[in-house]
């Protein structure tokens, strides 16, 4: 099932953008295995999408589902903040609960 819908907005091939994609993939694999759908939007190719979403900073990650909608800015290298920003509880903590 696709529980999480995540959209990552980047502008072309920049270091920040590349890092953000790699970090996002890693976090999703670790935390949301099989429960997410991830889409990368290059603003250079789709400026209107950026306009509609009123994106200013890039990279910006938007969690469209589940509600509430959340926005996270930056290359996503601070995993703790990413999880906090997306209202997610780290997998390690969840395991800790069960133990």
């Amino acid at each position: 099932m696709n529980k999480y819908i995540l959209k990552l907005y980047i502008v072309g091939r920049t270091a920040n953008g590349e890092r953000a994609m790699a970090n996002l993939r890693r976090i999703c694999e670790e935390e949301l295995k099989g429960q997410y759908q991830m889409q990368v939007v290059d603003v250079l190719e789709h400026p209107q999408l950026a306009e509609d979403e009123r994106i200013l900073a890039t990279p910006t990650l938007i969690k469209e589902l589940p509600p509430p909608l959340r926005r996270v800015v930056g290359d996503l290298s601070d995993t703790e903040k990413v999880l906090l920003g997306l209202d997610m509880v780290p997998a390690a903590a969840r395991k800790g609960d069960h133990a």
Binding site: N23, A57, V72, D75, K81
Partner: peptide
Amino acid sequence: IVTGGYDLG
């Protein structure tokens, strides 16, 4: 929430 490097591209 800022999680790392960004710009206003």
